[in-house]
Design a protein around this nucleic acid. Structure first.
Lengths: 279, 279
DNA sequence: CACAATTACGAGGGTCGTAAAAATG
DNA sequence: CATTTTTACGACCCTCGTAATTGTG
């Protein structure tokens, strides 16, 4: 049987027009290519070229062969691509979440439970997440509510409690706890990529939010500026307290969400070590 | 890039279950196969097998790869088949005819005109022939009439004149020419594969035809039996007279047909040397 | 202990590149 | 005479098979 290599050489000759030019492109010597393609003809038992002494041109059979060859080469390349992709997807767990906090809980846990696995994360809207769960774009999605469905396993992952972060000198620093309405009207620092927390802006319409797109820049600003900002118990648990800052719990129910992991049936087995931890 | 060979080895392992068994089927040593498949994994950058020390089994990625591999192998085999077939069709001229006589004229002519070509022949019904001409199953069809069409080239190939062949002692042997009705009622030898000549049986309803399926057997019978049979000027021209037989022309128009070659436009160029001989 | 897979190693075959020849426009 | 293909030939790489190793049921 001939080999893919020979088919690629055939296609290269068809592209280049001459054996010499094709050989150069393929980074082999021209006699090598000449021989190789002769061998292909021999193996097929068919002439693919009309040969004059210093010129070869594809004959009709050759042109048909090139057509098939290109198709097979494409299939072969496609196979490599798809197999690699599948392999990669098999060794990464893709998480979608409505907020960044759950990642802090899930990420180290998954790394511990699944050896050599990598974790990819994405914040998105609820409906996108749910669709993604069914399309297997996400292996796990985290929402601030339970979705009840026959083919979905749900468990509570964690809670997150939003807190106000202010410099110790700030007038609010002495409070044990506060409500959102107590602080509406201030100027606050806000990190942009916070998923569903964004809705805070709808309830704090009088507040002037200074948004920061970059996490590094935001952290820097919090440290140096005297402006209030938000943090949470999860943040503090995983990243530690920020020096010279006081964190005050916020009482409103909407900023003390419970997070639920949702896993589709077909991923249940693969993720059973995780599920066992929670049920 | 990996090679077809490796894909076939992969498929063989999937079929056989173990490397050892597959190696035996492939007629190579087991270490060779083991290494070869390791190389495939390396080239893909992907593990295809779960390995224990004395057992390998395809993992999910491997199963996907096998699926693709089988498809590619099939395509490759299909290519070889189709290319060979096309090549063969390119070097054979396929003739369809309503009767065997024209072959005697065409065959030697084509061999002389087209170097290294082989000729395939087939007798069939008129409608099958015409359909076959359009479907390129036949490069040339021969009918006892002209089909007029835009995309078909027609020329007269030859005539054929049916003759009665009888032993010299036969009462009819002295006639210069006869009519079918003169001989209806006899017992005659008849070769079966004579295409449209078969219709003679419809006009000679009182004759008892002893049919012979095998050409050899028929020729033998004609030589040894005293029964009348049919022959024709074309038969005599190409195969010579049969000893101890007298051939008498038959006058009826229906047994003195003219034969016309029909060639489809797309074969006109390839067959132009033939066409030139006749127009 | 039979069987399966991998590793080690030397032999042999096949493919490569260089060089030369032949042919063409 | 530059360009292209094919043939000749020697070198080297690669893959093969044998043999040995390891591990398993």
């Amino acid at each position: 049987m001939y080999e893919l290599n020979q088919l690629m050489q055939l296609a290269a000759i068809a592209d280049a027009g001459t054996i010499s030019a094709a050989a150069e492109k393929l980074n082999i010597s021209q006699p090598a290519l000449s021989r190789s393609v002769q061998k292909l003809e021999e193996e097929l038992g068919v002439r693919l070229f009309d040969r004059s002494k210093n010129k070869i041109t594809l004959n009709e059979t050759g042109e048909l062969a090139v057509e098939y060859a290109r198709k097979i080469i494409f299939e072969a390349e496609n196979m490599a691509e798809k197999v690699k992709l599948f392999d990669k997807s098999r060794r990464t767990i893709s998480i979608g979440s409505c907020a960044p906090g759950p990642f802090l809980e899930l990420s180290p846990l998954l790394s511990k439970l699944f050896d050599g696995i990598s974790v990819s994360m994405e914040i998105n809207e609820e409906d996108v997440l749910i669709r993604g769960l069914y399309d297997n774009i996400y292996n796990i999605i985290v929402l601030d509510k339970k979705i009840e469905a026959e083919d979905i396993t749900v468990f509570k992952l964690c809670e997150e409690h939003l807190m106000l972060s202010v410099p110790p000198a700030h007038p609010l620093a002495m409070y044990k706890s506060i409500k959102l309405e107590d602080i509406d009207g201030e100027t606050m620092l806000l990190y942009s990529h916070i998923g569903f927390w964004k809705r805070i802006q709808d309830t704090m319409t009088k507040t002037n939010f200074i948004e920061q797109d970059s996490r590094e820049a935001f952290v820097e600003l919090v440290k140096s500026a005297a402006l209030p900002s938000f943090t949470s118990d999860l943040q503090i648990k995983h990243n530690g307290d920020v020096k010279n800052r006081v964190s005050i719990p916020i009482e409103d129910e909407i900023v003390n969400p419970h997070f639920y992991c949702h896993i589709h049936r077909k991923n249940k087995k693969a993720l059973s070590p995780l599920i066992k931890k929670f049920v």
